[in-house]
């Protein structure tokens, strides 16, 4: 039984590391796709398309790895993650739509940027995750 558990623990660590690697690779690909056209390939459409395709593929890999990671968690950790993800999704949809409405109705001077929405969802997920861990501590 102990061997099985140490396998489970090492598998969890491996899944966490792999998720970190996939996330890092995806973030780097997003940075390349964002800054590459101006700084690296002078707005060459083919290069831009390739970098965006790479970003898409690495993103798909990251999503798949995130699913594996969550499936490998124990039931309490999975519940905490599920609650955090649902809060982040809800805040993202409600907050994102309100932000878009502010832009459409010209209440805010600048255009609505999707990066703010990504930051909002990321921060919400992290805060909800920490709150969940504290609640079941």
């Amino acid at each position: 039984m102990s061997n099985t558990n140490s396998e489970w623990v090492s598998n969890t660590r491996r899944q966490t590391k792999q998720l970190a690697y996939w996330t890092l690779a995806w973030v780097i690909s997003v940075a390349i796709a964002s800054f590459g056209p101006k700084l690296l390939w002078n707005f060459n459409n083919t290069a831009s398309l390739i970098s965006i395709m790479l970003c898409l593929l690495l993103g798909a890999g990251m999503i798949r790895q995130n699913m594996r990671y969550i499936n490998n968690l124990d039931e309490l950790q999975r519940q905490i993650n599920l609650e955090s993800l649902s809060i982040a999704l809800g805040v993202g949809i409600v907050g994102g739509l309100c932000y878009s409405l502010l832009d459409i109705s010209n209440v805010i001077a600048s255009d609505a940027e999707i990066s703010y929405l990504v930051i909002l969802m990321g921060v919400t997920y992290l805060v909800a995750l920490v709150a969940g861990q504290m609640r079941y501590k």
Binding site: M1, N5, S6, D74, E75, L76, K137
Partner: peptide, 12 residues
């Protein structure tokens, strides 16, 4: 260890 869950889960 015996149940293949985290200690946090047992505590909760």
């Amino acid at each position: 260890n015996s149940l293949q869950v985290s200690r946090q889960t047992i505590n909760a």
